[in-house]
Nucleic acid binder design. Structure first.
Lengths: 263, 263
DNA sequence: TATTTATGGTCTGTGGACCAGACCTTATAC
DNA sequence: GTATAAGGTCTGGTCCACAGACCATAAATA
């Protein structure tokens, strides 16, 4: 009887419909899932452009699949221009620099058509992250302080966009982990990943990085000093900033696109 | 290039690890997913014990799979004692009454071993649902009032545990839907489903149902009257009640289990 | 009572996904 | 110049899902 409770619990954050039987079953085959994991890993900064993914044989054993399957995943990623495979000793699968479409292009082709989904995602983030931040401030333990300070230092020392992204991810994860609740950690990571993935390059201009650095500093500080109220309001403002930026960007590009199609 | 953005976005709310490559790839095959959907549908009250699921051929076409695959899923569910299949005209796959293990049994065999996961889930719920409720109060439109009042009436008119569960689900969904944010609706539904699934029977004693009815009434009212602060605090209290109940239950059964194994 | 019909139950052949593992090719390190 | 660490190729096998035909049963209905 009880094995039915062992079914991996439903994991679909956003099935479009509300009726469990309304949508077709999709068997997510292995290569597809592997691509997703690898793209996620890059989005989260585990591998940065120029770096090689683990060798095929190692990936196969890490992921518990055959090498043929890993190769199929890598083949698709090569085809998409996401990685480049090089042979010989010191070869490997290298994450390409320019795999993200240009900002304007991305927005026109991806962001605009799916704008309502993004809006909901940003909106949810701005509602949920402050709660997570406040909870983190309330619950952080002594062990969390080190991770928070370290992430903050990394962020301040980041010199380019890529390093900023990675440090940003670490800092927000450190905050989420200070809640000591894996569900919240997972939720926060999932929101970040989805935004990072779908958005590609977040608009990390030097100016924005400066503002964000200040906010990150204040956020980490509020958590360290166990001040939930401040953590909440800083997070609110911080995530509002990003949302505002993207909104402006989309508006500008959207207008441009409209003008073009009119002309 | 852009097709890589079309990968169904990562959906795993709670992968245990934080490293995308640390865990094996699991190909969730079709029957497994179908079982999950059907169990979910029952957990959400779409089908109640005694009722028949749709006929196999219809399920196959709804879910976009072959009948053989549906049959495999139903075979597993029959094996687990979840449904009973009857042949002939007016036959079908009937949800069994007693498919949930008894409370104490369930707790001993399932809740105790996974207690930390539940704790995190309840904790997250108590943090997130009040925000959702407050947001619902802030954003509810005229169209939401009808759904809220109707759900409330259903809840009050519910006579047995099963009807209460269904009405409860509807009411909380109506609240979530008043936020007009599909991400929040999905999140709330997912938390509810997981708790409902893993918990099996929530402790719906008549007494609890009376208290919950009052709270539900106040919650719906606060949302209808667009009072975010009240909605927040009522939700906090309401979800605290459930958590407290389960916590007590587990403590009692846990003690009993300890005494037994000592004796 | 006989027939129709809506359901579950059974079978067969086909294609594709994934696996295990051996072996080939290339480019670098030593 | 050789050893080595990577990617590239091939084979044979297993299992899963599909399509579709057909069988068996029990209730509704004529």
């Amino acid at each position: 009887m009880s094995e039915i409770f062992e079914t991996p619990l439903l994991n679909e954050l956003q099935r479009d419909s509300t009726d469990p039987l309304a949508e077709p079953i999709v068997v997510r085959n292995a290569p597809e899932q592997i691509v997703e994991r690898l793209v996620t890993a890059v989005a989260l900064g585990v591998y940065v452009p120029g770096q090689a993914l683990p060798p095929e044989r190692e990936l196969a054993s890490l992921l518990g699949v055959s090498r043929a399957t890993v190769r199929e995943a890598l083949r698709r990623m090569t085809e998409s221009g996401f990685i480049e495979q090089r042979r010989g000793r010191n070869g490997g699968s290298f994450v390409l620099e320019g795999w993200r479409p240009s900002s304007a292009d991305l927005i026109r082709r991806h962001l605009l058509p799916n704008w309502s989904r993004f809006e909901a995602l940003f909106d949810a983030r701005q509602l949920l992250e402050p709660v997570i931040a406040a909870t983190a401030a309330r619950r952080r333990g002594d062990g969390d302080v080190a991770a928070l300070s370290q992430a903050l230092v990394d962020y301040r020392e980041a010199t380019d966009r890529e390093e900023s992204r990675v440090a940003d991810e670490r800092l927000h994860r450190a905050v989420a982990e200070s809640t000591h609740n894996p569900v919240l950690v997972g939720l926060s990571a999932q929101i970040r990943t989805r935004i990072s993935l779908e958005l590609g390059a977040e608009p990390y201009t030097p100016e924005i990085r400066r503002v964000a650095a200040v906010q990150h500093g204040m956020l980490a500080e509020a958590v360290i000093e166990q001040d939930p109220g401040r953590a909440h309001s800083i997070a609110l403002e911080h995530f509002g900033l990003t949302e505002g930026l993207v909104r402006d960007l989309v508006a500008r590009v959207g207008e441009a696109a409209t003008r073009e199609s009119d002309g």
